[in-house]
């Protein structure tokens, strides 16, 4: 008897009945606590971004050029054995340039470490 009623229930299946059936009795996927980790492990390796690579290359070239120029400037100053105001200004600019370039190279790594911590 019960089955006959059940059968008739489905003969007149409506959107609401079907929605209710799915909402109440739909299969639930078994929990998978490592799902996110598994997905993250399967992601492709990080691509080295070309723009970032060029940016760092330019900073390094800048640092090398500054160091070479400063060394030559120091040698010339020592040879002349006279230090002018102009020399002091040039040294200050070279040191400031060197520190700025080093900061540009190191800052992103420091910031990332701070964020991780």
């Amino acid at each position: 008897m019960n089955e006959i009623i059940h059968s008739k229930e489905y003969e007149e299946i409506t959107d609401d009945k079907l929605r209710n059936l799915f909402h109440t009795g739909a299969l639930q996927a078994p929990p998978s606590p490592w799902f996110t980790q598994n997905v993250l492990h399967r992601l492709p390796d990080r691509k080295r971004r070309v723009a970032s690579f060029i940016e760092y290359a330019l900073y390094i070239i800048g640092i090398i050029a500054t160091v070479i120029y400063t060394t030559i400037y120091v040698i010339n100053t020592l040879k002349s054995s006279v230090v002018t105001v102009n020399d002091v200004i040039t040294y200050t600019i070279l040191v400031a340039l060197f520190v700025s370039l080093c900061y540009m190279v190191i800052a992103p790594f420091v910031r990332r470490d701070i964020q991780k911590a």
């Binding site: 996927a29 799902f35 996110t36 993250l40 992601l43």
Partner: peptide
């Protein structure tokens, strides 16, 4: 990838139920 992990955590239960 941490941001993507957050998206996976948010959407995986519904998506897994759908596929299941």
């Amino acid at each position: 990838r941490r941001a993507f992990g957050r998206l996976v955590e948010e959407y995986s239960p519904g998506l897994r139920r759908f596929v299941f």
